[in-house]
Computed example of a mutant assay.
Amino acid sequence: MPADPRPVLVAPDAFKGTLTAAQVAGAIGRGLERAGVPADLCPVADGGEGTLAVLLTALGGETAGTRAHDPLGREIAAGFALIEDGGTAIVEVAEASGLPRVAPDERDVMAASTFGTGELIAAAVDTGAAVVLVAAGGSATVDGGAGAIEAIQAAGGLRGARLVVLCDVRTPWEEAPSRFGPQKGASPEQVRELESRLRALGRDLPKDPAGVPMTGAAGGLAGGLWAAFGAALEPGAAFVLNTLDTDTRMRAARAVVVGEGRLDRTSLQGKVTGELATRARQAGIPCHAIVGQDALDPFDARILDLQEIVQAGTMDDLQRAGEALAAIL
């Protein structure tokens, strides 16, 4: 029987803190191709960190930069991307307001601000972009977007540009402090104070984000931009997968490989790994996972219907995992 000429769609997310989505996809793809199986490399993201790189690589465009402020108000050089001949800009919240911008012993969630993200949005508007995609994830903040709103208003507003916030969670506004505050160093008392702050901010905004799905993304930044500027809120994973035309590419593949740094229950809650695995199951296409750490319980694994879950944390391990996978396809 002749070999199956169809490729394997290799569509991992980044292994956060260690490897980019493109690095993971490349290593798995090399393993598959070394074993004689063609690979369609499709690095993905869920609207959080890494979204800019994934979309810029797939769609083409250019990067731009400006001076902005980090979560604690220190001036930094920060970047954003322009695609579609400059008609659309991509701003990652993590670029100026991300947790990696603040050393562990400096983290102060009560003082941390999204002002720098607002500066990046304003700089993107200055280039003439009609749409600004805001990848909301990985922030060091729970300020409800108050800093970003202030920066945008100080720069003269959006001037006709439209905001689309790509959300990596469905958390509503009022749950952002309890859900994300502890991850960013908030004590139980500080969580309660942050909840009080968001309630007050919600009352002062043109409309209250409380109860609206996805408004809690990036510590409430999504809700602040939704309320203050009418930003559209989109599930980030679905947006990225649709933009990359993964459904068409999946139907042309013999199998799909997903991946992320840690596979666990949260993978079923809006993350791109769970979204793509679900699409593969619905299309009747075998789906395999190569991950840094497998913490998924058997019940959740059955929900995703993953054929194989392989742990591989380094580039060499990922390549070997790709070779091993080729042998069973």
Rank of each mutant, 00 (worst) to 15 (best):
residue 238 A to S: 14
residue 21 A to T: 02
residue 159 R to M: 11
residue 221 L to M: 14
residue 126 D to Y: 03
residue 147 G to E: 08
residue 28 I to G: 00
residue 243 T to H: 11
residue 258 V to P: 10
residue 173 W to D: 01
residue 140 A to Q: 05
residue 74 R to W: 06
residue 303 I to S: 01
residue 100 P to E: 13
residue 118 G to Y: 11
residue 213 P to K: 09
residue 119 E to F: 07
residue 297 D to Q: 13
residue 115 F to R: 14
residue 12 P to F: 10
residue 173 W to Y: 04
residue 19 L to S: 03
residue 152 I to T: 10
residue 183 Q to D: 13
residue 144 G to V: 11
residue 189 E to M: 02
residue 92 E to A: 06
residue 160 G to L: 10
residue 62 E to A: 15
residue 257 V to G: 05
residue 224 G to D: 07
residue 316 D to S: 15
residue 251 R to Q: 13
residue 73 G to R: 10
residue 324 A to T: 15
residue 326 A to S: 07
residue 298 P to H: 11
residue 195 E to L: 04
residue 100 P to L: 14
residue 167 C to H: 12
residue 135 A to M: 05
residue 78 A to R: 02
residue 227 A to M: 07
residue 317 D to E: 15
residue 285 I to K: 07
residue 286 P to G: 09
residue 81 A to C: 05
residue 95 E to I: 12
residue 275 E to C: 08
residue 311 Q to H: 09
residue 202 G to E: 05
residue 98 G to Y: 13
residue 87 G to E: 15
residue 99 L to H: 14
residue 99 L to R: 14
residue 24 V to L: 04
residue 186 A to K: 08
residue 111 A to F: 06
residue 15 F to L: 09
residue 117 T to H: 11
residue 136 A to F: 09
residue 88 T to G: 00
residue 17 G to R: 12
residue 181 G to F: 04
residue 253 A to V: 02
residue 12 P to N: 10
residue 34 R to A: 15
residue 175 E to L: 11
residue 249 R to P: 00
residue 9 L to R: 02
residue 251 R to C: 07
residue 98 G to F: 11
residue 210 A to K: 02
residue 94 A to D: 01
residue 44 V to R: 04
residue 326 A to N: 02
